[in-house]
Write a protein that binds this DNA or RNA. Structure first.
Lengths: 198, 198
DNA sequence: TGTCAACTTTACACGGTGTAAAGGCAGAAA
DNA sequence: TTTCTGCCTTTACACCGTGTAAAGTTGACA
């Protein structure tokens, strides 16, 4: 897919990802990326019209590299709604740390750049659909709490599984990734399912 | 307190707050604030060394105006842990929309300005203490879930009640403030308390 | 009258993004 | 071999927002 037919572009995407990977070094400038990719800053603009599109392209690149679609498809095979919810938390929850750096950069850009805001919102809409599917599966099993509508339940799960929430728990509060997944599964079920009887 | 002995400074704070109030107009520049406060841009720098400190000072100003301390103190009087949690959700949850604009601006600044990051983190630490108090009250009543430590429960509640979570639910998803409060109370209890029997 | 504080005006440095234009260079095509 | 083409470099610059610097204005107060 991406790895043939335009090696420079791919090198730029890979470099961008590497520079943003940890998410600690907040200030990744176009010149930093250019230098790391061993290219002139101007050549960057021959491949991407601006910083926002470069960042968005990088997220798409990561989706490909990690085959997020494939993993998602697998989670759809879960037999019960609850199992599907658990799987969804695993798949998306474990993907967050990989995209965290780019996500952070894009979210920072949101404030000033409407185009970046739209792009990020689009990507998050895909996550919302995953949440909606899990909620629908719970509703199908008849175990969804009666205290929220399906939409509200989807919104709530989506928010619980958001990148800022992950950031606060795993970066600010120091949760391990494993603990995050385990507790998210628990919290999601407690929030969305009325009686805990298995 | 703030309303005597330095009228210009107070006018600046009030203006800053007004400009940031809705949170929609993302780009509030120093020159915008100066113009709205009917002052030269340079005069701003006579009162505040930089944008970050102006924003932080504005949050403190709001704390005063809304007497957040007083309301917090009242919530401490709740008889049971669960009542205290409910009160805490009401007090803090209803304060979020008022500080949302400034919060958004400060959070955007966090990426580039370490000082702003520290300042915001300080303010959020105060919120965490409110969460810790509610969790401790639940633990004192013996109703805190056995599946998390007290620290983890505090972290989880803190994240549930974070500004980005409010933003996603009330701005992106269109929840009303009342519904937000009602569902947050429910979700918090379901997440933190084991058996739902009253 | 003089002093002081608050404020204005003008000007500028800096850093980061994005634009513009001219030229280098390798490989394919004629 | 020449020429064309695509990809890249170099240099230069405009724009924007933040923050600094310095000289001048104004009004109150003693």
């Amino acid at each position: 897919m991406s790895s043939k037919k335009n090696p420079t572009r791919d090198r730029i995407l890979k470099t961008t990802w590497e520079l943003l990977e940890d998410g600690g070094a907040s200030a990744v400038r176009m010149s930093d990326i250019a230098k790391a990719a061993k290219i002139s800053r101007q050549a960057l603009y021959l491949h991407f019209p601006n910083r926002a599109e470069l960042l968005v392209a990088t997220t798409r690149y990561l989706d490909e590299v990690y085959d997020i679609e494939g993993k998602l498809a697998a989670s759809r095979a879960a037999p019960t709604g609850r199992a599907r919810l658990h799987e969804w938390v695993v798949v998306w929850g474990n993907y967050i740390p990989k995209i965290y750096g780019i996500a952070k950069a894009l979210m920072a850009l949101q404030a000033s750049d409407a185009e970046a805001a739209d792009a990020w919102s689009d990507r998050m809409q895909a996550v919302r659909e995953g949440c909606a599917a899990a909620v629908a599966a719970l509703a199908g099993d008849g175990v969804l709490t009666s205290q929220m509508t399906e939409k509200e339940a989807t919104d709530a799960l989506w928010t619980l599984l958001s990148v800022p929430a992950w950031e606060q728990l795993c970066v600010t509060c120091g949760w391990t990734q494993d603990r995050y997944i385990a507790l998210m599964q628990q919290m999601a079920v407690h929030m969305l399912v009325d009686d805990q009887a298995p």
